[in-house]
Amino acid sequence: MSMNTFPIIRVVTKLLIPYILLFALYVQFHGDYGPGGGFQAGVILAAALTLYGLVFGLEAAKRVAPPKLMQRLMALGVLIYAGTGVATMLMGGNFLDYNHLTHDVWPQVLPSGQHLGIFLVELGVGVTVTAVMTMIFYTFAGRQHIT
């Protein structure tokens, strides 16, 4: 069930969503420099999906981001985060000691192990938060009414 009676809202939403996604990516990867980070980016992404779902209907949103995928992403994010910690352990440091990560991956952007670690960790948070928030919206919205 989509918001068919509000064509303007539909148009505006269609117009906005790409920018919102862009904004989310900006927040995700700019988190080291300004306010923002994985969590906030995840929420914004999820908000974009929610908005899509609100305006174009739950089914449309589920086609864009299938629940099965989302449920797996939920898990994946946590694994990325903890996996980063395990990786530092395997490289000989303490858990989550990013200084032990190699940092020649992308020296301009990630000049040190700390940068790389924070990047990965924020990515993990972002993935989980996006997936969980979307999943929660799906589950609520998908619930049938009983009157």
Partner: peptide
């Protein structure tokens, strides 16, 4: 306010 629902159908 307009639809009273967020996706699912109403069952009675």
């Amino acid at each position: 306010t307009e639809y009273g629902s967020f996706g699912g159908d109403r069952i009675r």
